[in-house]
Write a protein that binds this DNA or RNA. Sequence first.
DNA 1: GGTCTAATGTAAACGGTGTACACATTGTAC
DNA 2: GTACAATGTGTACACCGTTTACATTAGACC
Lengths: 205, 205
Amino acid sequence: MPQAGAYHHGDLRAACLRAARELLEEDGSSGLSLRAVARRAGVSPTAPYRHYADRDALVSAVAAQGYEKLAGYLDAAHPSPSTPDDLAAVAVAYVRFALDHPPLFRVMFAEPCDPSSEERVKATAVISEYVRGIVHRAFPGVDPDALSTTVWALVHGLAFLHLDGKLDASTSEVVDTQVRTAVHALFTASTTLAGTAAAPSEPAK
Amino acid sequence: MPQAGAYHHGDLRAACLRAARELLEEDGSSGLSLRAVARRAGVSPTAPYRHYADRDALVSAVAAQGYEKLAGYLDAAHPSPSTPDDLAAVAVAYVRFALDHPPLFRVMFAEPCDPSSEERVKATAVISEYVRGIVHRAFPGVDPDALSTTVWALVHGLAFLHLDGKLDASTSEVVDTQVRTAVHALFTASTTLAGTAAAPSEPAK
DNA sequence: GGTCTAATGTAAACGGTGTACACATTGTAC
DNA sequence: GTACAATGTGTACACCGTTTACATTAGACC
């Protein structure tokens, strides 16, 4: 039973999205139920179906917002990264985002979304291209595809292992220096290999 | 209603575990419900509670089996890895395991298990120690903690990105060579840095 | 062998969930 | 002003995890 005399909500779509985001932060993925979202938005349990086909669609919308938020983190680390140090700073921001918003990060990456919403596929393509661009500028002469997927994987893995408590995340300084160190180690390799043939990996399809 | 004249199942614990494993492979994490497990075991919906405290406990048991299975993959790649090439082969096996059993891999790593069953914490500690041992043998002179967490993160990230379809996994050969290339790139860095001071990351606690 | 007890399985019930369906209300374009 | 499309409600179904009380049985002890 919503506000008296307010049969139509006004912008239920946005309200659902906001409620979903909040519930996810508060109670994790399992707390993000369509019914809870409807309750929080002050609306009947089935009202959200007018704006989202099913739970997955709503979750995907939250994930899409997460990608934007992640982009904000990366951008704040460096607006136009073009050196190895810049890239390292961006990597630190990536891991920090994961540790700042664990359930959101999990929703973005840890859930099967194989042929899921095009929203998400596109969003990850954006990330991929973003990293590729930085690598291209920071390491002219090396195969950007190979190095960018490698550095993305490294940072992504660090984020997940930290998220699962498998690594020492006692202080943010420890985490930051570890990420920086790991990324720089990889860079050392790439510059060493700068002249060698491009690695036969990940054709741009 | 189970078999006539078979009120007691015999080994319901194992039967539940097997059913859970099957359901996970078939329908993913969402298909792994206690009730479905009970149905498959031919037993009443609440019978599994005699052997598992709740759903999480059963899932953790499945995950623990997954860690053993993963160990089998790694061992099959090389029984006693001690060179960089050996380690690369093990890394390939790690990613292959993830791609062979996506839902299982997700259950093992992608679910929040912060203070969860001790079973899982121990299992990941085993992995960590295993990698550390190989790195120590393959790269005497470098800080094994720093390099092992880095290489684990790299491989773990590759596994996840492949799982989410973010990388080119068209053929297993492509994946394999990509993993091998990425890992080797990291090794190049570590040998370059062999003499330098140990990186200040991840104290062994 | 007979009995007592703990282990194991069953049945019923509660609250929560996703989702489909028919219906009510309301903004809007004509 | 009226028709229509958009939006929100109510009801219903099947499934889920979990609790509680009860039934059955295996195994120990005499």
